[in-house]
Amino acid sequence: MVRDRIARFIEGEGHRVETAAVGDTEELAELVFRTRGQTFSVAVSDADPQRFSLSTAYEVPTEVRDRTQASDALRDVEVDFPETRFTLAHDDTIFIATVEYDALDVEAFLENFWEIVGRLRDSGTGAVERMVDRSESKAAADKFIRQFMKGDR
């Protein structure tokens, strides 16, 4: 089965893998592993063995309290990483980054596996940085305006 091939590959690359069935059917499974301190999951369906979905979740930084700010940042990062789809979840305290990957077969997917993981990681960390940057920019602007109004500038 496709899930077994992918699980063997990830283990062969040195990572512990947990496999969990998704829903009531045997067709859909999720393979969960960790790399570089981050947990990733690969969703595979034996009914659609050429389509793979790779996901990872990040916490929305605590200084980002505004949902609009978070979703704006995610939309901006999607321009740089058009293959990644971002979804806010758990009352907007986390966001999930997902890449849907269509491959000729499972071997083609595995050939590019770590590159896809790397792109997904870059997109997620890029999104977190973008959110924080926006907070800092706003704080810097507030500071400037306060100084301006006091006549310091």
């Binding site: 690359e13 040195g14 990572h15 512990r16 960790r34 790399t35 947990t39």
Partner: peptide, 21 residues
């Protein structure tokens, strides 16, 4: 780190080998 490892000790040295990505 979620990684697998193997041990390869001898009389003098303690050794662990593992892979990541």
């Amino acid at each position: 780190e979620g990684l697998l490892f193997t041990r390869d000790n001898d009389e003098e040295a303690l050794r662990i080998t593992f892979k990541s990505e």
